[in-house]
Design a binder for these strands. Structure first.
Lengths: 346, 346
DNA sequence: CTGAAAGCGCTAACAT
DNA sequence: ATGTTAGCGCTTTCAG
């Protein structure tokens, strides 16, 4: 067995047939092109023997299809995103697509650069969890007729494919649940990012409180403080300034982690006297003490819907412009200890 | 501005120069090839104007370099791997490489298939967290002179590049720490996978116990039970069968999660009377009650070493065969409440 | 200083 | 039924 790289050409030479014939056989167009059984079998056997695999790169260059989907998210190391990534990965591979994940850190420049880089690479489609300032890039992709599916967030004034959850209602129900459990002073900890999902969550919270004649109390942390670690100090400050708080509602998972740390470090067991609720579920919440009530996003469904949309676009390159597929999923409030009425005497 | 795709050819035509000239200018070889200032500037300006970006696919086909690294890990949604992935991603992008992550679930067939698929795609290098049965594929890659760096685990009888930690010593020190804190009956919960990292951890545990005249007590769970959820039942069983256990040492992160759940569900507050220690750190361990002592792997360093090795190979395609780079990093035992001597009266 | 041309490996329209 | 051939967009040798 030779050590050289096999190509469709070398196979053709070896077998004394033409390149075309080999190509057709390989691509399963043998009978369609009425290639004789004998030749077909000969080629197939030989290919099998030498373990030939076509060069995907050349194929891509020729066909313009790379069979690669890129998935841009905030941070692949974040529990929410990595879980989603895994689900997307599995569905994509099933259909012969590979996925390149990249973390944008919600940074517009980085996102834009990445989008451009992947256009050079002719990726077939984009799954994007967008930061605020890349609206024009989405339009650019749409205009170029390249499949894009937004996820987790969208641009309200932009017609596009997206898969999101009903953030406002989810937060509304969650806050209502706290209210029904007799919490009177519910603080809301959120970030300053003006993304749809965050706006929706805050809206839902405010709505529930207003409806029940309660006063919203919101702590807005800068996204940058995620890195600097300043957010913990701010949360502590908030707690100290608002001694009458009896519950806290965290708008996203990393804030919850910080919040729990602050409470643990500064108030010890008082954590049990506190109402606690968070967006985004986590395996650890069920084994935490108290078990943490969470708004669980339907990850499987989200991944599935994203991919259904994506494959639809991939299949009908033309039709895609006609209308966009907009999916809004609902969440599940996983009610656990932390949000139940406190009967403990102080 | 036209709507067509720009290519090096269309630029050449537009500017009335040759394709070669454009190519040289684009690749920064203008002065090397002594192209006149004027022409160079003209081309550069035009490229800038139309926002031309070379087709990476064509470039790759021609050069044989795809600037893509594939990173195969057990499961991207697992905290340990996703954290590592993010670090690797960042380093790769800095150097102009993209990385494709894929989850193998420790499955040999899936891993092998993936390796083959990526060879068709001409990826430039492989970072692999290998399952047991892919030794021959690693050799195949090495033979084909394709950069491979193993991580987390390796094959003891295979000369290869790898970045791992000193599992045996880490587990030894950890177990010793428990012993020094007066725990007498330390159970070890691990999986049945015969991978080097798991073997090392168990060895270290056994060694420490033997040295101190204590009897090892090991629960081995099948990796498959990770999915079926049977592992929790087995852990509970183990605890019930061994009522004299006063400490537990978990060999890997998902077991810890299960273990904590079992303890919480069945023994309630007794968790505080128990010695607890785990491999793999997690943000939640510091906010858990009790705070969980963990063997923290040096993720940043691991990612860095993996990439240093990888870039070394990428740079010197020939030299790589000469000798392999084997990096063994040490871990840090993060001592927290859960492993400290219990002074609580029972 | 610049250009022509071969070719990376593959697909597919157009022969025959 | 099978072969010829023209590219996909780029790099690079060799000739001017």
């Amino acid at each position: 067995m030779k050590n050289k790289r096999y190509s469709i050409k070398s196979i053709a030479e070896e077998l004394g047939v033409s390149i075309t014939t080999v190509s057709f056989v390989i691509n399963g167009k043998a009978k369609e092109r009425r290639i004789s059984e004998a030749v077909t079998k000969k080629i197939l056997d030989y290919i099998d023997l030498i373990g030939y695999r076509p060069n995907q790169l050349a194929q891509s260059l020729r066909t313009g299809k790379s069979k690669i989907i890129v998935c841009m998210m905030e941070d692949i190391s974040n529990n929410f995103f990595s879980k989603l990534a895994r689900l997307i990965e599995d569905i994509a591979y099933e259909k012969g697509y590979k996925v390149i994940f990249c973390s944008t850190e919600n940074n517009d420049e980085k996102s834009i650069e990445l989008i451009d880089i992947f256009r050079e690479r002719q990726v077939d489609g984009y799954i994007i969890i967008p930061s605020l300032g890349i609206r024009h890039k989405i339009i650019e992709l749409q205009t170029a007729n390249i499949p894009v599916v937004l996820c987790d967030r969208y641009f309200p004034d932009l017609d596009a494919n997206y898969v999101v959850i009903d953030n406002e209602n989810a937060a509304y129900q969650a806050a209502k649940h706290l209210i029904e459990n007799n919490f009177k002073n519910i603080g809301f900890i959120t970030t300053d990012v003006e993304q749809t999902q965050m706006i929706g969550r805050q809206k839902g919270y405010v709505k529930a409180l207003n409806e029940h004649g309660l006063k919203p109390n919101i702590l807005t942390l800068s996204y940058k403080e995620k890195v600097t670690g300043l957010s913990k100090a701010k949360i502590l400050d908030f707690l100290l300034q608002n001694q009458d708080l009896d519950a806290m509602f965290f708008s996203t998972n990393y804030l919850t982690k910080n919040g729990l740390a602050v409470i643990k470090d500064n108030f010890g067991n008082a954590i049990n006297n506190f109402g606690l609720l968070t967006f985004d579920d986590n395996d650890f919440f069920t084994i935490y003490t108290p078990e943490i009530t969470a708004v669980a996003q339907p990850l499987e469904e989200m991944a599935k819907e994203v991919m259904v949309t994506m494959f639809g676009l991939l299949k009908n390159p033309e039709e895609k412009m006609k209308s966009y597929r907009k999916v809004i999923l609902s969440t599940e409030l996983k009610i656990r200890e932390s949000s139940l009425e406190k009967r403990i005497s102080f």
